[in-house]
Amino acid sequence: MAIDWGFALRIAGFGLLLVFSILALLIVITRVVTRFASKKGPEEKEKKEERE
């Protein structure tokens, strides 16, 4: 069967690039979500109270 190897390589390259980029982007989003929505630990709470 005739295979267009160039097209196949482009699909694979694009797919891998996209999956790494998206999951890396999700790391950044997770960090942002954590920063604004995570539970404050007792140490952080104490520090905040001290500052206030």
Binding site: A8, A12, L16, A24, I27
Partner: peptide, 29 residues
């Protein structure tokens, strides 16, 4: 969410998809 490094490992483990993809293409070729 507690350890976001997992995202990168989840991406790397998809390599197998493309190995088999090219393997199948080679058999067709």
């Amino acid at each position: 969410l507690a350890s976001p490094k997992g995202f990168v490992l989840g991406a790397a483990a998809q390599m197998g998809i493309f190995v088999a993809f090219f393997g199948a293409l080679a058999l067709g070729f």
